[in-house]
Nucleic acid binder design. Structure first.
Lengths: 127, 127, 127, 127
DNA sequence: GTGGTCTAGACCACC
DNA sequence: GTGGTCTAGACCACA
């Protein structure tokens, strides 16, 4: 697993798990991989995963059944969705709109720019 | 001045200055506030501003006239615009689209969500 | 059965059994539920109950008649009472008094606070 | 510094700091010892203190000024008091009353028992 | 100097 | 087997 530099690894793993919840790959109530398992899969130290799980548990997304493992809480989907939506609306979106205004980019241009850039970076990789 | 936790202060100050350039508040060639001045205005340690100016200078957005002060370079606008546009396309936009997909938000919804949230947070402040 | 997070499950089960003894629900000499039975009732792993019974046996509160089952010892009541009283005086009470001092709560306030909180949490459940 | 076995060290340190707040030894807004400082004072690993501070920050009791240190938040006293009071009322007190009922101890007996036990254990130490 | 993160490895209680 | 905690030590970004 590759990680970005500008964000803590434990947070990136948490993000991935949130995506698993939102995409429906992980169902509420389901058991998630053990700390050691995730650590091996992601090639990180178990302690790092401990932090990830601690964060998710605190948010109410997962819960610990002692001696058994971690499970998605029943409201995992709702909580995750609410969490992501809130930060999206209060943080990402305002920032986006400010940048768009400064660069004179309209909402209608977004799809075009996105597609163009994806194609370009895709071509780059292919080379 | 309030700063976000998830980004270095020096970078946030640099961002603000970039916005000044892009919005036209600061014109190419113009003198910008001294390190000491900015430090006082923003309530941060002068060392932090040193770092901001170092970063901007490295990017070619400002230049230092020794003993006189810092000035926007003649290409400040173009450089800043290119810089912002690049990171917007390669970093912000892809990230946005991924979140939007997970949350089932379409491009058409953006304006509505943005307005709604701005109104809501505005009302909150008013209370 | 619901368990608290901050205490081992085996200990919580032991506590419940001690309460049964002290309240008179269980009489000295009486047979107590089998490990398997308790495990099923409490929805825990039988190994956990084994530990509970081992602990209680070590304290002399119960004894094992091989092939037959577990029985309260004849002194079960006295032993349990002494045990509880000791930990109450040496651990719970001092802790309580320290907290009460920090929160400026007097002994005379206890009953009022307790009743108020019980009513409040009761009302909450009723909703 | 000596720590009890039945509670995590990082939590015990957090408790001590809460007591400092409640007792008025630490005033809201005040700077608290740095992580390294506390680690040395308490004779624990800095990482352990990191956890303590992380916990307190999450609760809103302290806040971090980047590169400078940790400070008690302005509401440190209120938050701490509320926190302690809540766990006292919802956890300690009900537990206490149940034990008292089982042991036939009345509220009026508490002070006597407490004093008696303190004297006894004090004498023990003196020997 | 400050805190933040990560690794490596250990020990423990618990299920 | 599970998670929880702690240590020791390292590196980093930041003020």
């Amino acid at each position: 697993m590759e990680f970005r530099d500008n964000q803590a690894i434990y947070a990136q793993i948490a993000d991935l798990m949130c995506e698993n919840v939102l995409s429906g790959a992980w169902k509420p109530g389901e058991r998630i991989p053990s700390i050691r398992e995730t650590a091996e899969t992601s090639q990180v130290n178990p302690n790092t995963v401990v932090r990830t799980y601690g964060y998710l548990e605190e948010k109410g997304i997962i819960r610990n059944q002692r001696g058994v493992g971690f499970f998605l809480s029943d409201d995992a989907y709702e909580i995750t969705r609410k969490l992501k939506k809130e930060t999206f609306e209060s943080r990402e979106l305002p920032r986006m709109f400010r940048i768009m205004e400064l660069l004179s980019i309209g909402i209608d241009d977004l799809q075009v720019i996105y597609d163009a850039h994806r194609d370009a970076s895709g071509k780059e990789k292919a080379l």
